[in-house]
Amino acid sequence: MALPPVTPAAPADRTRSARQGPHRDDGRAALLYLAPAAVVLLALMAYPIYQLVVISLHDYGQAQASGAAPLVFLGLENYRTLLGDPQFWDVLAATVVFAAVCVVATMLVGTALAVLASRAGPVPRTLLFLAALGAWATPTMAGSYVWLFLFDQDFGLVNEVLSSLGLPLSGHSWTFERLSAFGLVAAEIVWCSFPFVMVTVYAGITAIPREVVEAAALDGASAVRTATSVVLPILRPLLAIATIQSIIWDFKVFTQIYVMTGGGGVAGQNLVLNVFAYQKAFAGEQYGLGAAIGVVMTVLLLAVTGLYVRAQRWRP
């Protein structure tokens, strides 16, 4: 199977042997086991997603939803409007770059800190974990406001401290320049999402049997070589899962951008797709167009993830 195996190569073999074992009624049992999740997902996910596609083919706004105006079938008109809008392509490019930066930074910071934690003593490590869990536990909205407050031009700590060090930053706005605003949001995103990666990778590292690493060292492998050819392959499935989740989360970022750049920044310079969809379609009650953006985003994410999964498989 092409999806990243969570346990390297194992599950397929094991389930196959289970199949030859005492239980032979897998189909029916599977149905039974899947039933609770399937009922919920079919009832509350599958149908709305199907409706999303249907809505994207109609001129559908608040008046249509409340039944005050007739439905008009548009076919692919909403998609044509969207793909013909030059702003959409700008925003798409910005979103891809922004999400890529966030994913890479999150993975690097998370992995580096996991390695650091595995080298440190129990007390510093526990403190690091508590701090990271705190960042992770902070609700998105709360976290966005806290960071915004830290960097506020008038009341923020950062400007206050930097200008007392002699830098001309009193009253400096961190959200006025496009890159500075994106950078600030990216920092907040890394802050609240690296803990997931760190905890995952740390647990992966501690699960590697000591003998494996020691054996490599005895064979004369350098530390770098041990890391790349012994530790990394074991961690790869975990990293793959963490990366896929990060891609999905960061590509769909909404709250941080919306709160921290005031709905998309000066003249819309900090729009990403999800905020663009909100501003362009949902806030203006053009649900048909909004649904089309949603479908396009899903397809894009699927393509990106698919590419990533294939790239993973091609590696030796």
Partner: peptide, 30 residues
């Protein structure tokens, strides 16, 4: 993971897709 049946991969992909759809877009149907 422990049972074999047809359509497993499709189901797994569907689970991924379900996480990809922007939530905001689903509020009206929901």
């Amino acid at each position: 993971t422990r049972l074999r049946f047809r359509g497993r991969t499709v189901l797994l992909v569907m689970l991924l897709v379900a996480q990809m759809v922007p939530v905001e877009a689903l509020t009206i149907p929901l």
